[in-house]
């Protein structure tokens, strides 16, 4: 059986979790087994996990799951996997999933691959593909253990409906007492899709000349229902918040569309974004290295071009 750990936010299943369930479903199909989901805490839409391939949802709603404690969550996931005799455990490669994978794998004596971008190859063995060297190469990794743990990189596969709503069943687990205390959670703009999950991202660099000019970036993001991001110099200068910084030291993303405005494309920036499916680069310098990684390039004054692009997309949507 393939067991998928489902992450939630504000009492709902996260988009990354739907992708993980769908990945689990496709993996289970290949292995000729079923895909089941594990929910720690509550999600009002848990039954809908069936739509993406879960045949059953196991739920434990202990109050210990109200805050994220790596030890508490890892122990619960490993325990559920043992109890349900899962041969594969799937996690989302989110900030919590990245924290969990090593811990869960150790507890299950399992080999693990994080940030998988494809369904495992199961013809002979169990091999998983992921990006390495900051996306400059790909690697296929064979997991040699009976139980396997895989985390799925966000936006790696297009989910589709393959089933119907399913039952949510309680599961009894020995839940640990938290060893840490979460003092506060500071979330900004909860109505915006978080960067790692965003399908479209509009990103600004030093070419914007100052934080007061970000209006044109936000307006373009708005018409595209995109999330805004920025380059490192911009977050270092405090023009934009630290959590918007994409690149090697910031967040690595993989949206369908990445629009880079006034970003030259230093190798450290590219390392975080060059997995994007379509890249648009707008820059006044025709020699900007970013153009080499772009699908579409516009050379010119961004203050003139960006509002025109916003208007053109509005027109298209009208």
């Amino acid at each position: 059986m393939v067991l998928v750990f489902v992450e939630t936010e504000n009492g709902k299943v996260r988009k990354a979790a739907l992708e993980a369930v769908y990945y689990g479903y496709l993996t289970a199909q290949k292995l000729g087994t079923s895909c089941q989901a594990l929910l720690l805490g509550n999600a009002e839409d848990a039954t809908s996990l069936g739509l993406y391939g879960a045949t059953l949802v196991h739920q434990n709603d202990s109050i210990s799951f109200n805050f994220f404690d790596n030890q508490v969550y890892s122990a619960a996931i490993a325990q559920a996997a043992k109890k349900l005799e899962a041969s594969v455990v799937i996690l989302s490669h989110s900030s919590n999933g990245k924290s969990l994978i090593g811990n869960v794998a150790y507890l299950l004596d399992a080999g693990s691959v994080s940030a998988a971008i494809d369904i495992p190859e199961t013809d002979k063995g169990f091999s998983v593909r992921k990006g390495v060297y900051s996306s400059k190469a790909l690697v296929n990794i064979e997991i040699n253990t009976t139980v396997k743990v895989v985390s799925v990189l966000g936006n790696s596969l297009q989910i589709s409906v393959v089933g119907a709503n399913v039952e949510v069943q309680p599961i009894t687990l020995d839940v640990l007492q938290p060893g840490i205390k979460v003092l506060s959670v500071d979330k900004l703009q909860s109505n915006v899709t978080p960067l790692p999950e965003a399908e479209r991202v509009v990103s600004g660099g030093r070419g914007l000349k100052g934080p007061e000019n970000w209006g044109i970036v936000e307006e373009l993001a708005d018409v595209l229902h995109a999330t805004t991001a920025c380059s490192r110099p911009v977050s270092d200068a405090d023009w934009r918040p630290h959590h918007e910084h994409v690149g090697q030291t910031g967040i690595a993303i993989r949206p369908n569309l990445y629009i880079a405005i006034g970003i030259s494309g230093a190798i450290q920036h590219l390392a975080g974004v060059n997995n994007s499916k379509t890249i648009v680069v707008i820059n006044k310098d025709p020699e900007a290295p970013f153009f080499k990684s772009a699908n579409y390039g516009v050379v010119g004054d961004l203050f003139d071009i960006v509002p025109k692009l916003t208007a053109a997309i509005k027109n298209l949507n009208a």
Partner: peptide, 30 residues
């Protein structure tokens, strides 16, 4: 004994050359 082994590496497929769009024609980019 390590629990995983490397099967193979590959380089990502080469990207097609960038397609330049006239800055006066953003309707075309859209």
């Amino acid at each position: 004994s390590p629990k995983i082994s490397i099967v193979s590496h590959e380089l990502p497929p080469a990207k097609k050359a960038v397609q330049y769009i006239d800055p006066e024609n953003m309707a075309e980019l859209a």
